[in-house]
Design a protein around this nucleic acid. Structure first.
Lengths: 201, 201
DNA sequence: TAGGTTTTATGCGATACGGTACAGAAATAC
DNA sequence: GTATTTCTGTACCGTATCGCATAAAACCTA
């Protein structure tokens, strides 16, 4: 897939009137709110400010567009995760910051969307194996990021960083689910804060 | 809603050719695999062995049918949860049994469906508030059941049973998500077993 | 048996859906 | 300037969708 940012030699014909990443950002809002099946191409192209043929030429069909959006969202999220985990403070403080930032995104108005992977990709998994595969890869990458954070900390080596990462990831997924089902940010933050010492024990 | 099992006085006209709960069980398989939006009325009525007008007369529209199915599924699940938690053994053993039973259901072939609440209701929440409400109620009931189990155990009163229940529930939701995204039962069971001592610490 | 009542079965209708054909527009290559 | 390539916009196609109208069937009451 072309990213639109590569400064490859200007191709010959009429240039694109959009930037791929901007389209993915706009489309993400629709997929995040409605899910893959629930989002119609009318809504998607309206949100993107593009006509359907342009979407199709750029991304292929709806499934490929969804997967591109999911990977874009996941990659951005993991970058944010890495950044917070590489920041200052104890691992407890950084982990708490990770949860706080996640909860702010998960409970953002107006939809309290939760996480795109947990909240929208999971439901399609049995029907669309490629979506399941992309989602599983992203969850694995999230846990790898957490594992790096724990490995670089001064926590005891037992439990292993990978085990701590699985646990920290599980708590994050649960928060995402509860956010999408309407849980209040304050409750989720209290829960997250109560889990940090357990994960870092 | 009539349950079909109430032995209310036989009504006057032609009797129903189906039992409500049996229909809900059959329909559940379709909703569980495809989600609310992804399941078509053709699939649903075929699975139920009913024609669409019969479904409509009995349940109303698709949303109401889905919510009835969700509540049926949730209530049955909570009964199973209560039963295991009321069984023999230490709370650690009983909690491990809960997870093992859940993982068997979540990873059942051919679809590895996970949990209906977490795997299919969550995605619809922003669009269908009544589904969100029913799902949130069921999660709360699950945590209440877990809380009763911890309250009846001989674990220390700190952390409080409610806090343990939130944690145990979070682990269950995370397992459901990972199951639907393709995780292997053995990996999930290892994870669950590793979490039991932490939850019961 | 006749009448009343509820559930089935067939089939339809209006709409929304995903996806595409085609012609015109905007850029580069020669 | 002309040709070529690529993208945009309109308009459309076939299909699948949800939900319902209608009439026949099955049962109870009398």
């Amino acid at each position: 897939m072309r990213t639109g940012t590569e400064k490859e030699k200007r191709s010959r014909g009429r240039p694109r009137g959009f930037i791929t990443e901007e389209v993915l950002e706009k489309v993400r809002g629709v997929f995040l709110a409605k899910g893959f099946t629930g989002a119609s191409l009318d809504e998607l192209s309206a949100a993107a400010g593009l006509n359907r043929p342009s979407l199709y030429a750029a991304f292929g069909d709806k499934e490929q567009l969804y997967i591109a959006t999911l990977r874009f969202y996941g990659t951005k999220s993991i970058e944010g995760l890495d950044a917070i985990l590489a920041g200052p403070g104890t691992i407890q403080q950084r982990l708490a910051r990770v949860y706080s930032a996640a909860i702010d995104l998960y409970t953002a108005p107006p939809h309290r969307p939760g996480c795109m992977i947990v909240g929208t990709a999971a439901v399609e998994s049995p029907t669309y194996p490629k979506i399941a595969e992309a989602a599983a890869e992203l969850l694995a990458a999230i846990e790898k990021s957490l594992e790096r954070g724990f490995a670089a900390s001064d926590l005891p080596r037992k439990p292993a960083p990978a085990a701590r990462a699985r646990m920290a990831g599980a708590i994050m997924y649960a928060i995402a689910i509860r956010a999408r089902l309407g849980a209040k940010a304050a409750d989720l933050k209290a829960f997250a804060n109560s889990m940090v010492p357990t994960i870092c024990a």
